[in-house]
Amino acid sequence: VDYIVEYDYDAQHDDELTIRKGDIIKNVKKLEEEGWLEGELNGKRGMFPDNFVKEIK
């Protein structure tokens, strides 16, 4: 499942992704941690907030 970024987010920890509006995040999975998703961007896998992105259908 792929998501498109709607709002910029700067990573706060090493396991998070810095994302920018218009980025496409690939292979996204829901995490047990409420409010977070995990996906791949530019060869890096990491977490990001689910309210900054929208699923591409």
Rank of each mutant, 00 (worst) to 15 (best):
D23N: 06
G22I: 01
I19W: 00
L37Q: 03
V53R: 02
I4R: 07
D50K: 15
G43Q: 07
E34P: 09
E6A: 08
D14G: 10
Q12R: 09
Y7S: 14
K26S: 11
E34T: 11
G35A: 05
G39L: 00
Q12W: 07
L31T: 10
L41D: 02
L41I: 09
G46D: 01
E34R: 11
D10N: 12
D15G: 12
H13V: 14
E55H: 02
N27K: 09
L37G: 04
D15A: 13
D10A: 13
I56N: 04
A11N: 05
E16N: 03
K44L: 12
Y7M: 14
V28N: 02
D10H: 12
E16D: 06
E40G: 07
D15N: 12
I56V: 07
D2R: 15
E16A: 07
E6L: 15
Y9V: 02
Y7L: 14
F48P: 00
P49A: 13
Q12F: 07
L41V: 09
G22N: 14
H13W: 09
L41Y: 09
V28P: 02
E34H: 12
I24Y: 05
D23T: 05
W36P: 01
V1S: 15
D10W: 14
G35H: 10
Q12H: 13
L17Y: 01
E6F: 08
E38S: 13
T18F: 05
I19R: 00
F48H: 00
D23E: 15
R45S: 14
I25Y: 00
E40W: 14
D10R: 12
K54W: 05
L41S: 08
E34M: 14
G46H: 01
W36F: 12
N42G: 09
N42I: 04
E40R: 07
K29T: 12
M47H: 07
V28A: 13
E6K: 05
A11I: 02
I4K: 06
H13A: 11
E40L: 09
K30Y: 10
E33A: 14
K54H: 12
K21Y: 07
E38L: 10
Y9R: 15
N27Q: 06
D2V: 11
K29H: 10
G39A: 02
E6V: 15
I19G: 04
D50H: 13
G22S: 05
I24V: 07
K21L: 06
I56K: 02
D23A: 13
I25F: 01
G46S: 02
V5Y: 02
K21H: 09
N27L: 13
F48N: 01
E38G: 06
N27V: 06
E34G: 08
E16T: 03
L17W: 01
L17T: 01
E6M: 14
K26Q: 08
G35F: 05
L17D: 00
E32L: 14
N27I: 04
D14S: 13
Y9E: 00
L37V: 07
D50E: 15
K57T: 15
W36L: 04
L31N: 13
D8F: 04
T18H: 06
D15Q: 11
K54F: 04
R20Q: 09
I25V: 12
I25L: 11
D10F: 14
G39P: 00
V1H: 10
K29W: 14
E38V: 12
A11T: 03
D23Y: 06
G35Y: 04
V53D: 03
M47L: 08
M47E: 06
E55M: 04
N27F: 10
D15W: 11
I24Q: 05
F52Q: 03
N51I: 06
G43Y: 05
L37W: 04
Y7G: 15
Q12G: 08
N42E: 11
I24E: 03
G22L: 05
K57W: 15
H13Y: 13
I25G: 00
I56Q: 05
Y3I: 02
G46E: 00
D15P: 12
K57H: 15
E38A: 10
E38T: 10
D14F: 11
E34N: 10
W36R: 07
T18P: 03
D8W: 04
R45P: 04
I4V: 08
E33R: 14
F48W: 02
T18G: 05
V5A: 06
G39W: 00
K54P: 02
G22P: 01
D50G: 05
V28H: 01
I19L: 15
E34Y: 07
D15S: 12
E40Q: 11
D10Q: 10
D8I: 02
N27T: 08
D10Y: 15
K29I: 12
E16P: 00
G43L: 06
V53H: 02
Y3V: 14
E34V: 10
